[in-house]
């Protein structure tokens, strides 16, 4: 992140990419009303080839906006998005074509991910650059463990898990190197969820597919990803190896997230999380109103990102807490 971008294996990167949406809907109204709402405030990240990166955060944290920027569905209003060191905004049509072949997206398995009036065969055929042969379609379905009998079905005739597999197959049609998945399992039952995760893991193993998984479920991301990026209020607040972040979260928000993961019997009688005040903040640390460790400076200065070992944390207290943790151990 803070290291210079452009190491050989870096595929995708953002450099303090931000996105603000105008409040006014029409361009005419925008002439008079220039107010905007920020969805993402300066996020920097790097995706290396072969990475399994998880992006976690609650709704409104900007994680989906970041994902849409990464795949070119949306343009940043500040900062840059780079693919192999080149800014997406400088892409020509041919560049986009190549980019689409290498970076693909899996949508949340909700009902709108597939066109309700198109058969599976039709939806998948469109995903290929040229009209595929029947054999290619069957092979694509086989990659996501589905049989060719589904080809002439319509989306409403598929189960939730099947729909999500079709969604993954559609993204795989161009044999991309990077797959970005936005909440790939949140619309599914737990048992189906684990099947989809197993499928993604298998794709990563067998095809060295680089994966970026966006989720609100830290448990899922922690169990699946190598590296985790925690987002809060449009900012990245903590980055680091998944195992470390789950075992000893540094940022107080990450701490909260980890504590909130349901743990079955082990989670019985754990102290209740105090309700949080939800006041909006301008200036200072975005998490300050909800933070139980806050100190006066938190209300004034936005914390810088501090590098602690493998981790990057945006918290004023992170260095002192790291020292305490070290002396304790």
């Amino acid at each position: 992140m803070t290291h210079a971008q452009g190491s050989a294996a870096t595929l995708l990167a953002t450099v303090s990419a931000g996105r603000r949406y105008p409040l006014a809907h029409s361009p005419l109204a925008r002439l008079f009303d220039r107010r905007t709402t920020p969805a993402l405030l300066g996020a920097s990240l790097e995706v290396q080839a072969g990475d399994v990166l998880g992006i976690v955060g609650e709704s409104g944290s900007g994680k989906s906006t970041l994902a849409r920027l990464l795949v070119g569905l949306d343009r940043p209003s500040s900062g840059r998005v780079l693919f192999e060191g080149r800014d997406l905004s400088s892409f020509t049509a041919a560049d986009w074509q190549r980019f689409r072949n290498r970076v693909q997206f899996v949508f949340q398995g909700a009902h709108t991910a597939l066109n309700p009036r198109k058969t599976v065969a039709c939806s998948l055929s469109e995903a290929f650059p040229a009209q595929p042969t029947p054999g290619a379609l069957n092979a694509l379905l086989a990659q996501v463990s589905l049989g060719p009998e589904l080809l002439d079905r319509l989306p409403h005739q598929l189960s939730g898990g099947q729909k999500q597999r079709i969604g993954i197959a559609r993204a795989l049609a161009r044999q991309p190197e990077v797959l970005i998945a936005d909440e790939p399992t949140s619309a599914l039952d737990v048992s189906v969820q684990s099947e989809i995760i197993a499928l993604l893991q298998q794709l990563h193993r067998e095809r060295r597919l680089t994966l970026v998984i966006i989720s609100h479920d830290l448990g899922l991301v922690g169990a699946f990803c190598d590296r985790v990026l925690v987002m809060y209020a449009g900012r990245i607040v903590e980055t680091g190896p998944a195992a470390q972040i789950l075992a000893e979260p540094t940022h107080p928000y990450t701490e909260r997230l980890v504590a909130a993961i349901p743990r079955g019997l082990a989670g019985r009688n754990r102290p209740a999380d105090p309700p949080l005040s939800e006041a909006a903040r301008h200036g200072g640390c975005p998490f300050e109103p909800r933070c139980s460790n806050r100190i006066p400076i938190c209300a004034q200065d936005e914390p810088p990102e501090i590098l602690l070992g493998d981790r990057l944390v945006a918290c004023h207290l992170a260095p002192s807490r790291a020292i305490i943790a070290e002396t304790n151990s």
Binding site: S145, G161, V190, S191, V192, Q193, S194, E195, I197, A198, Q201, D217, L218, G219, L220, G222, A223, F224, L246, A247, V258, I261, P262, R263, G264
Partner: peptide, 18 residues
């Protein structure tokens, strides 16, 4: 159902396929 929930500190176990 128990195995299907991803939990930190435990490797994911793939559920039975269809």
């Amino acid at each position: 159902l128990l195995d299907a929930v991803p939990r930190p500190g435990r490797p994911l176990r793939a559920a039975a396929p269809a």
